[in-house]
């Protein structure tokens, strides 16, 4: 079953149409485990998480969200399991960032319907610190640059693990060191965020989120302000964390080739509606992106690897 498809992909010959992954989301919502055999296939490893009875880490259950009567998210449902790498894509204003913020309960105003469930519990039953211990967050770049050094920003992110009165313990400092090391920022630790380049600063935010030590990491367009090299490095780092530490990654991105390259899952939003949720390799099949972006894409065979590339 899934292996057949895998073979198809490698052979650079995606099926023109398939009833396995139709755009209709209800079809795949029923068999959550089926996609997980596929998702790792393009990466050539198989760290299929959990057993068949595994529970989702994060689940949106018919979730809708509106601000002042305007519907931003309309009946979004998805189940995300430990170790999943989910790319959230869609046109501007599709509700991608709002979706991410709702997963973290960052949206101050607005009304929501349906549920977001984290580790089997409604997200609204979590305390703010409790939530921050499970979910790390890399905000969208730009705007205010905090007057802190790289290390200070990472130390601040230990807040959910520290009591109100006590300072950071040795373990906390070690976690900060480890996060800076992982992000490749050991050398820049003492530098002020204001003196860094955009790419370095983005890494500093990633390091801060790593210091938070959540099992799930949400990233809002982490590569938006980066040049291709830095964007690539960031992607490689995220894949590494996803594979080696089983970090669950949910990332909003505008780079349509990123999900094709890394595999994993794609959640496609358009006008607040979920138009596709499934293996991201399927994005190379015509129709899914077209429906979301209302635009005709070009699909080119990858010159050196399996699969195809998308060109706008």
């Amino acid at each position: 079953m899934p292996d057949d498809e895998h073979t198809d992909m490698s052979a650079n010959n995606p099926p023109a149409s398939s009833d396995r992954w139709p755009g209709d989301k209800d079809a795949h919502r029923g068999d959550n485990d089926a996609h997980r055999g596929d998702k790792d296939a393009p990466r050539g490893d198989n760290h299929a998480p959990g057993g068949d009875g595994a529970k989702p880490v994060l689940e949106a259950d018919h979730f809708s969200f509106s601000i002042e009567g305007k519907l931003i998210l309309d009946d979004v449902s998805c189940r995300i399991y430990a170790g999943d790498f989910v790319s959230v894509i869609g046109p501007n204003g599709a509700g991608k960032s709002t979706f991410l913020k709702c997963l973290l309960r960052l949206q101050e105003k607005g009304r929501s319907e349906g549920r977001i469930v984290l580790d089997g519990r409604d997200i609204n039953t979590y305390g703010q610190k409790q939530l921050a211990r499970v979910v790390s967050y890399v905000p969208q770049a730009g705007g205010w640059i905090p007057p802190f050094s790289v290390r200070e920003l990472a130390r601040l992110s230990r807040f959910p693990h520290v009591s109100a009165v006590a300072g950071l313990s040795r373990d906390d400092e070690l976690a900060v060191d480890k996060a800076l090391e992982l992000a490749g920022l050991g050398r820049l630790a003492g530098r002020s965020l204001k003196t860094l380049s955009g790419g370095e600063r983005q890494k500093a935010y990633l390091a801060a989120a790593l210091a938070q030590e959540g099992r799930v990491m949400l990233l809002d367009e982490p590569a938006a302000a980066l040049d291709p090299k830095h964007a690539f490095e960031l992607a490689v780092l995220l894949e590494k964390l996803n594979k080696e530490d089983n970090l669950t990654v949910i990332m909003v991105t505008h780079d349509l080739n990123h999900p094709l390259r890394t595999g994993g899952l794609a959640l496609v939003l358009s006008g607040g509606r979920e138009t596709y949720f499934g293996p991201s390799v399927e994005l190379q099949r015509e129709g899914i992106l077209e429906a979301a972006f209302d635009h005709k894409f070009l699909y080119l065979d990858h010159p050196s690897g399996p699969g195809r590339l998308v060109v706008a």
Binding site: L106, S136, Y137
Partner: peptide
């Protein structure tokens, strides 16, 4: 300190 770093960041870190 976290508030200085940004409201969204502060909330995401448990404030």
């Amino acid at each position: 300190d976290l508030l200085t770093a940004g409201e969204e960041l502060a909330a995401s870190r448990g404030v």
